[in-house]
Amino acid sequence: MPVLLLTSATSLHDAVVPLCAAAGVEVQVCAEPDLALAAWGEVDLVLVGVDLAERVVALAPPRRPGVHVVGVAPGDTVFRAAVELGAVSVVDLPQGAEWLVDALADVGERASPGRTIGVVGGAGGAGATTLACALAQSYAARAPTLLVDADPLGPGLDRLLGMEDLPGVRWEGLGETAGRLGARALRESVPRRELLGVLTWSGLRRRLDVPTARRILPAAVRGHDLVVLDLARQGGPALTELVDRCDDLLVVTPSTVPGLAATARLVADLGRSGRAGLVVRPGGLSDADAEQVTGLPVVAAVADQRGLAASVDRGLGPLAGRGPLARAARDLLAAAA
Results as ranks from 00 to 15, higher is better:
R322N: 03
D244V: 01
L319K: 00
V228G: 08
A268G: 12
D289G: 01
G259M: 11
V299H: 10
T253H: 13
P218C: 02
A309T: 13
G307Q: 14
G283M: 03
V299Q: 09
L308R: 04
L333N: 13
A303P: 01
L250T: 07
L250A: 05
Q234W: 02
V298M: 06
V299D: 11
S311A: 14
V221K: 02
R272I: 06
P297S: 14
G271C: 12
V279N: 01
A238R: 04
C246G: 08
L332W: 07
V298C: 06
P254Y: 11
D247I: 10
L229R: 01
L239H: 04
G295P: 09
V293T: 10
D248N: 08
A220P: 11
L308A: 06
G223N: 09
G236A: 03
G295F: 15
L308G: 05
S273I: 03
R272G: 05
G259T: 08
D287M: 02
D269T: 12
E291V: 15
L229D: 04
G259S: 13
V252M: 04
V227K: 00
R330G: 04
R245W: 03
L250F: 08
D313F: 09
V302F: 01
H224I: 03
G235L: 09
T240N: 03
V280M: 15
L239G: 06
V228T: 06
L231N: 03
V257A: 08
A261Q: 10
R265H: 06
A288H: 10
L285E: 11
A232P: 03
V302C: 00
R306D: 14
R275S: 15
R306E: 13
L332Y: 13
L250G: 00
V267A: 14
D269Y: 01
G317W: 00
G317T: 01
A219C: 04
A262F: 06
V243E: 10
L226E: 05
G307D: 09
T240R: 15
D225H: 14
L226V: 12
G284V: 09
P218L: 03
V267S: 11
A261C: 06
A238M: 08
V312W: 01
D289L: 03
S286H: 02
V221L: 07
L242H: 14
L333I: 00
R233L: 07
R265C: 02
V257D: 04
A328F: 11
